[in-house]
């Protein structure tokens, strides 16, 4: 088993003046190529901070991130992020938003025509080619997130980082988009790391679920394998015993052993 992405003893301490808070403590995780891993935990447990560290947007206090045995500590297109609130640039069209990344990543390796075709190919993958000339304000929330996914995919990342990608969507759109992401993962075989707080989403999509304890000093509490073969069908899984067992395990972890006390 070779480690593709390796989180090595990551600690994160936020310091403000004299007060300092330890957010993450001793996070160790190895992810294989092509794996879909979800990180789940209550809000405020530092899972978004962890994703930002992997993306290189925030530095770890100690420890580091290894991608294909090379340390990465600054942001780059090899770890493209799909942000929770889509983060499309409102003054660019759908096409231009995707092209922004493509032009940078493939500036030397692809010709202008090839880059154009590549942008359209990725918009097609998320079924958004029809809206290529629309601005983000003219399309729905689910469509924006599709474009966000296309933008990330188009950079051909080694690891695709999803930061609560469906959190801001309504339930129907969310289910629809989850199916799309599942289909894309099967088709392209990307390595995906997803942050979520939705138990069903985690069990449905992931090969492994990483459960985090409550902060401060959040650790990895438990890692659960989801032994369900693809393609997974939402409706069939509703009665599948393995699915239900996995779901049960995660729920127990979140609501019995690591209850979110502040919310009570």
């Amino acid at each position: 088993m070779t480690a593709y992405l390796k989180l090595d003893h990551i600690d994160k301490v936020f310091t403000r003046g004299v007060a300092s808070t330890e957010v993450l403590k001793d996070i160790n995780l190895t992810i294989e190529k092509g794996e879909y891993v979800s990180i789940i935990g209550h809000s405020g447990c530092g899972k978004s901070t962890l994703l930002n560290i992997i993306a290189g947007l925030t530095g770890a206090t100690t420890g580091g991130v290894l991608l294909e045995n090379r340390e990465v500590n600054s942001p780059g297109p090899d770890r493209a992020v799909v942000f929770q609130n889509h983060s499309l640039l409102p003054w660019l069209t759908v096409y231009e938003n995707v092209k922004l990344g493509v032009d940078k990543v493939f500036a030397k390796t692809k010709s202008r025509a090839e880059r154009d075709a590549w942008v359209m190919h990725n918009l097609n993958l998320v079924q958004m080619a029809h809206a290529r000339d629309k601005r983000p304000s003219e399309i729905s929330g689910g469509m924006k997130q599709r474009v966000g996914i296309a933008r990330a995919l188009a950079m051909e990342p080694k690891v695709l980082l999803l930061d609560e990608p469906f959190g801001a969507l309504d339930a129907l759109t969310r289910a629809h988009l989850q199916d799309s992401v599942m289909a894309l993962h099967q088709k392209l075989g990307n390595t995906i790391l997803m942050i979520t707080h939705d138990v069903d989403e985690a069990v449905l999509l992931s090969d492994r679920i990483v459960m985090m304890t409550n902060g401060p000093s959040a650790r990895i509490g438990e890692v659960l394998e989801v032994p369900l073969a693809p393609p997974r069908k939402r409706l069939e899984l509703a009665t599948n015993t393995t699915y239900l067992k996995c779901r049960q395990r995660v729920l127990e972890f979140l609501y019995e052993r690591h209850r979110f006390v502040e919310a009570a």
Binding site: L57, P77, F83, S87, M155
Partner: peptide
């Protein structure tokens, strides 16, 4: 300028 836009720029490496 929203931090999101800065993050996008950082990931794309502008």
């Amino acid at each position: 300028i929203p931090q999101d836009y800065r993050n996008v720029a950082a990931v794309v490496q502008l």
